[in-house]
Design a protein around this nucleic acid. Structure first.
Length: 652
RNA sequence: GCCGACGUAGCUCAGGGGUAGAGCGCUUCCUUGGUAAGGAAGAGGUCAUGGGUUCAAUUCCCAUCGUUGGCUCCA
């Protein structure tokens, strides 16, 4: 093999020979001109490279375009540089933090110094970006020494880049330059700014430098760009669509829940229909829990401060939580409960436990109160008073694995029954750099973490792992679901805890007649009723299956003449345990149908002369239009059948 | 908590230094209509709250409260 040739393996399995030093762009060009125009970067031996970077050795090459996630990523990262260039041109002397691509778009953190910048200036920046993009400036990669780099940003006076440089090793530092802007960056980048055809700067926000709230807050500018104007329009249309699924809007429209300034921030009021929905969800889970061997308990909303001193909650959160409530004369301190586990531990201690009693599975829809920072409150997803579908499993160490796997099954059953298909399972571990955030010894943490890792892998779950996301008393397996705007929320959670049993001195008598320490598994398949309902709303747009829908039917008489028959139908449905009502308004049928459709009621039953005469109803399913006339008795049987099916996943 | 934006009728929103408007909803009347909006009339607002500037503030300024997009946090 000559030194001058390289073998390039392409994803289709073909291998082609090129001159050494060939670029991905040239490879693309050898395939087709159109492809070459669209190539943004290339994956060379698994690493994303600039399309213009010479390939010197035999390699596998995957050309990346806008249709590849990595292509998009590169595109947006380059767009961040373009935005920085525009900003520097408009606001000389500003300093830059970091500017990465994110899930949909990019941002750059900027220190504007004394210069004013607000949302209304974004348009100006967009225009400048468009102007610079049209210049089709190439993104040029240069390798620099650490000293050169320090010198450049020292002269420029950008302390943020200097700080970033401090952590980098000499010999691995690259600059990228396009037009008049040079940035410290490991790349890769798209060939030139000309690819960026549609630009939208979406919002600005404060963001702490290096995510540290003790450090300076920079201005973060978010944006998104596309290679075609049409794609930007589609993206904006998608955002508009997402607004329709906003649970706060749906909660108001469907009269599910509300907030009142007078009651207080983050304290939801459940309206009758929302309560109906929530109670149906709770009943669904309770039924599954009875099958899985859980027992229900009820504990008070407050507990003596000493309970939380024992659990460690007071030490970890006492400063940031609602202050203790005092008895009037004795000044005894009570806390609003932030978690149910301490109460459940006390139930465990009610009497001596034998190894034969375990596992003990204690479930409670327990309402808890936490002082969440005001800036964090968000609709029903982040509130200060909420109800967990909580349970604690007290078991022997040899039972942890089996119990944990059974809980995974329960969570999967719940998710499946409610139609959540796109969820991510996340193993949330302790931050090894920051152990003082947690209680307990390394030894028990290792046991708990490996218990989770083993059980999830035995279940064959595809997981991601995040450090620093554990609870203070133990690691978790979290089930994350996205909202309408693609933001991830933790719903289900399962936690292994060796610590609270020690703190509460929980024991059981083993077969050896010795005292042993049980292990606790904390778990909540919904997470909280509030957040679960919120995410369910965003995922279903409020179009609930029959069994969940707060209103299951509405009877629509053609005119007031058929009111009696409508009432008769209503009565029979009520006797069949369905919830709904008759729309007796003095409106035309078209109007009644429209309103019922918009209220997302699953069954609309239209009754008029024909139906009254034949004891039938004309059925319209929400979203599906007229489905013809049906005998009332047969309909009731069908609806009951539909309910049965709903509780078994994988129907239809 | 921090940075930014916003707060006008039940809802969605327009307006703007001289004490307010639309559509929907609501009430009443007419209409008795067959599968996504029938017609008419009417009621409804201390323009979030508190200060300041001004002859005059809902409008401008400040603060507070609330909402919201992020950041940080999240038992």
């Amino acid at each position: 093999m000559s030194e001058q040739k390289v073998k390039i393996a392409l994803p289709d399995g073909s291998v082609k020979v090129y001159e050494s030093g060939v670029t991905s762009h040239q490879i693309a060009l050898s395939i087709s001109e159109g492809l070459a125009r669209n190539v943004l970067a290339a994956k060379v031996n698994g690493e994303v490279w600039d399309a213009s970077r010479p390939i010197l050795h035999d390699s596998s090459v995957q050309l990346l375009t806008w249709n590849d996630d990595e292509g998009k990523n590169t595109f947006w990262h380059s767009s961040a540089h373009l935005m920085a260039e525009a900003l520097e041109a408009l606001y000389p002397g500003i300093k830059f933090g970091i500017g990465p691509a994110v899930e949909s778009g990019f941002y750059y953190d900027v220190d504007f110094g004394d210069q004013e910048f607000n949302a209304s200036d974004l348009e100006k920046v967009e225009q400048k970006m468009t102007e610079l993009a049209r210049q089709k400036n190439a993104y040029l990669r240069t390798e620099v020494s650490k000293n050169e780099a320090l010198d450049y940003f020292g002269t420029k006076g950008d302390e943020y880049k200097l700080e970033l440089l401090a952590d980098l090793e000499d010999g691995s530092i690259t600059f990228y330059q396009q037009g008049g802007f040079t940035d410290l960056c490991r790349g890769p980048h798209i060939p030139d700014t000309g690819h960026i055809k549609a630009i939208k700067l979406t919002n600005i926000a404060g963001a702490y430098w290096r995510g540290d709230e003790k450090r300076k807050q920079l201005t973060r500018l978010y944006g998104v760009t596309f290679p075609k104007k049409k794609e930007l329009d589609e993206y904006l249309a998608l955002l508009e669509e997402a607004k329709k699924r906003d649970h706060r809007k749906l909660g108001r429209e469907l009269e599910l829940f509300a907030f009142s300034e007078k009651v207080g921030q983050g304290l939801p009021l459940w309206l009758p229909k929302g309560t109906e929905l929530r109670e149906k969800l709770a009943a669904f889970l309770k039924k599954a829990q009875v099958k899985a061997g859980y027992e229900s308990v009820i504990t008070p909303h407050i507990g003596s401060k000493s309970l939380y001193v024992t659990s460690g909650h007071y030490e970890k959160y006492g400063q940031d939580s609602f202050k203790p409530i005092l008895t009037p004369n004795e000044n005894e301190e009570f806390l609003l409960k932030p978690m149910n586990c301490p109460h459940h531990c006390e139930i465990y201690k009610f009497k001596p436990r034998s190894y034969k009693d375990l596992p003990l599975r204690m479930a409670e829809f327990g309402t808890v109160y936490r002082y969440e920072q005001s800036g964090e409150l968000h609709g029903l997803t982040r509130v200060r008073g909420f109800t967990q579908d909580d349970a604690h499993i007290f078991c022997r160490p040899d039972q942890v694995n089996e119990e944990f796997k059974q809980v995974i099954d329960l969570v999967l059953y719940v998710f499946e029954s409610l139609g959540f298909k796109d969820f991510v399972t996340q193993i949330s571990l302790r931050d090894p750099e920051n152990k003082q955030k947690y209680i307990g010894s390394d030894d028990v943490w290792e046991k708990a973490e490996s218990a989770i890792i083993e059980a999830t892998s035995e279940k064959g779950l595809k997981t991601i792992t995040k450090l620093g996301e554990a609870a203070f008393y133990g690691p978790k397996l979290d089930f994350m679901v996205k909202d309408a705007l693609n933001r991830s929320w933790q719903l289900g959670t399962i936690q292994v805890d060796y610590n609270l049993p020690i703190r509460f001195d929980l024991e059981y008598v083993g077969s050896d007649n010795q005292k042993h320490r049980p292990v606790m598994i904390h778990r909540a398949p919904f997470g909280s009723m509030e957040r679960f309902v919120a995410i369910l709303l965003e995922n279903t747009e409020g179009k609930f299956p029959l069994w969940l829908s707060p209103l299951q039917y509405i009877v629509l008489p053609i005119s007031e003449k058929y009111a009696d028959y409508a009432n008769e139908v209503d009565q029979q449905l009520k006797e069949g345990a369905f919830s709904g009502y008759v729309d007796h308004r003095d409106e035309k049928i078209g109007r009644k149908i429209r309103d019922a459709e918009l209220s997302k009621i699953p069954y609309m039953m239209i009754v008029g002369e024909k139906e009254a005469a034949s004891k039938s109803v004309s059925i319209r399913r929400q979203g599906a239009g007229d489905t013809g006339s049906h005998d009332l008795g047969a309909l009731l049987a069908y609806m009951k059948h539909e309910l049965e099916l709903s509780f078994t996943p994988d129907k239809e």
